[in-house]
Amino acid sequence: MRTLALEAPSLSMSLLGMTAETALPYADEVRRARQGDSSAFAALVRGLQRPVYGLCLRLLRSDAEATELAQETFLRAYQHLGRFDETRPFDLWVLTIARNLCLDLLRRRQKVQTEDVEPHTPTLASHEPNSEELAMERQQRRSLEEAMATLSDDDREVLALYYVQKRTTKEIAVIMGVAPGTIMARLFRAREKLRTRMTQPEQGVA
């Protein structure tokens, strides 16, 4: 069978399929930013703010922390721009930084284990026009977001990267630092858990 997701367009090109002649996304901005052009770096931030913030928000489930970490991600990227390998896609590099920062924070959170931590489900902004006809669809989307929020960090991450950010399995493997062959299985398991949560919502919140 062929899944819809396999036909989904990719925002950036597959790492393995990349050749030296292929133009990498953001290559010009990165080159100018490395030469000290701050307006080029601002263009990079504008171009990547949404996927970076989105990934942080889905992993951390806190608006304030996601904003803070997304900003920190870009600051780290700027500070280490000199070490960035220009033959690799810049967006994947930045997403990897964001992911690592989020995982560090999640690990620290687990260590602290404060009593007042409650599951927080931020309302992810809908960008649809405000119409009555779309109310049902918005409600379904909200239910899906809420069910997704009950999944583990790994499951949320892989679903967000594949379906929301439309990344390929190879790109996700680069960001997550795992073998590309494992991504399909992770996606399947995450979908299965999500499906179960949505059909049995009372068992959803663990």
Binding site: F41, Q71, H127, Q140, L144, A160, M198
Partner: peptide, 25 residues
Amino acid sequence: LEKDLLRLADPLPPPGFVAAVMEKV
């Protein structure tokens, strides 16, 4: 489920995000 998941979109960060990043930079 995939159909529904593909309709989800990343939210935009709060206003002033780029300016805050550039200030830190």
